[in-house]
Structure formats: C-alpha cells, structure tokens
Nucleic acid binder design. Structure first.
Length: 240
DNA sequence: CCCTGATTCGC
DNA sequence: GCGAATCAGG
C-alpha cells in the first residue's frame, strides 16, 4: 500500500483526533502501526503524549510551572502533579524576569511554548514586583491567592475534557475499536444506530471469537454426516 | 505480558 | 520516503 493523498489525510485526521497508531493502521489497512508512526513523523505531525516521553514533557511542564508560580502556590490543586525537585519557594520578590528556580541546565531553547504568563494582566498588588502566575492545564492563567477576581478572562471550566467523540453506543465495539485480537463479527447492520462488533477476544489465528468462528467456519464433515445436501455454490437459494 | 509512541537504519 | 526492528515507559 502506498501513501495516497486520501490515506495521508485520514492519517492526519485520526492522528489529530488522538487515535492511537494501531487504530489508525487498522483503519487504513495494509500498513503497520510502525508505518503509521513513521509516516506521521515524516509528515511533521507533532508528537502526542507518548508513554516514553511523558516524563520528559512533564518535567519540562513542571519546570515552567515552577518558574511561573511565584510566592506561595495556591493550596488547592497546584499545577504540577509531581515535581521531582522539591521546588524551593523562590524569594517573594525576585528581580524582574525571574530565572528558573531549578539551577540545573539553563535549558536554552528547549521549552519554547509553555504559555508565558502575560505580564501586567490584572491589577498589581501593593508591592510592585512582577505578578507571577501559574498556568492551568489548558494554558489558562490561574488565579493568584490574593486576587479577588479572575486574572483576565473568567476562570475556565473546572476541567477541560478532551472532546470525547463517543459513539452513540457506549461500551459497544465500534469500527475504530477493532484490532487483530478482537472479534470482528458484526452485530446489526452498517448504518443502523447500534451497529457494532462482537468485540470478544479472538480465537487465536482467526478474526472472530470462538463462538463466531463456529458461525464463520463450518467443519468439513464426512459426507454421510452432513445434514443437508451440499449447497450449490451459486445460483442456489440462499440458505440460512 | 500487554499496550503505547520514538527512533534507528537498511532498503 | 518507507517501515521493520528496536527501544523504553506505563
């Protein structure tokens, strides 16, 4: 299989949608998940949270958060879930443009984005030190302890939900759930609202579970044990 | 073990 | 450019 424009487009969409490389490979067909990942990288699709890189990303994020969070961190729900360095609280009034708290690597251009907190957003406290803010999961500026009102925009909803595509059928096995170890026996008919797949574990080496293999594959029995006469290959009435 | 994505490297 | 093999964390 080659990477036609359509296939690339599908890959992009699904990748953006957050589907795993395995799922995308299944959908496209004819390619392995490795192929999908390789192609995604070649296309420049930005990496999504990887189990391997997660620590790195988290550390970077934590560092940024630490940098942004001056003074006392608000007690309820600090941003970094786990910060490797104990994060010594920086001096209350560091010079403008506070340097990273952690004194390890200067980290030159590594963490570029990270939503630099807008300076001078809200009214400054009595002291004229720079207003330092931590940043929430969605890049929202968190409210500082002393603030009476949200910094700039109204506080974000409690949680940013990853836009769950969720089919009408919850818990049912949809097309995208299929993989080579899940029973692909269709239940219902395509187009029907509740069309889904069996989803049980496959009978190893087969596309269906044991039960549905029983439907899909009829044992070749000795003739005398055969119930009806062997069905005509074609042209005969459909039998069921 | 299973899963995941990242990376490498021969083709 | 492609993707299997390999790596490495969850």
């Amino acid at each position: 299989m080659s990477w036609t424009d359509e296939r690339i487009d599908t890959l992009k969409k699904m990748w953006d949608k957050g589907l795993t490389a395995t799922q995308i490979a299944e959908e496209l067909g004819g390619v392995s998940r490795n192929a999908v990942i390789g192609k995604a990288h070649r296309l420049g699709l930005q990496s999504r949270p990887s189990p391997v890189k997660q620590n790195e990303a988290k550390a970077a994020a934590a560092l940024v958060a630490l940098t942004a969070a001056a003074a006392a961190t608000p007690e309820p729900a600090p941003v970094p879930e786990e910060a490797a360095p104990p994060a010594p609280p920086p001096a209350p009034k560091p010079a403008p443009a506070p340097a990273p708290v952690v004194e390890a690597e200067p980290a030159p251009q590594d963490a570029p984005v990270a939503a630099a907190p807008a300076p001078a957003l809200g009214p400054r406290p009595a002291s004229d030190g720079p207003v330092l803010r931590s940043v929430g999961p969605g890049g929202f500026v968190r409210q500082n302890p002393g603030d009476q009102a949200p910094p700039s925009t109204p506080a974000p909803p409690r949680r940013l939900v990853p836009a769950k595509p969720s089919e009408a059928i919850a818990g049912k096995t949809s097309l995208l759930d299929l993989n080579d170890r899940i029973c692909k026996w269709p239940l219902g008919h395509p187009g029907e609202p509740d069309f889904h797949f069996c989803g049980d574990k496959v009978n190893p080496g087969f596309p269906y579970c044991v039960a549905h293999c029983g439907h899909a594959y009829q044992a070749q029995l000795p003739r005398r044990d055969r119930r009806p006469a062997p069905p005509l290959p074609f042209g005969g009435a459909a039998r069921r």
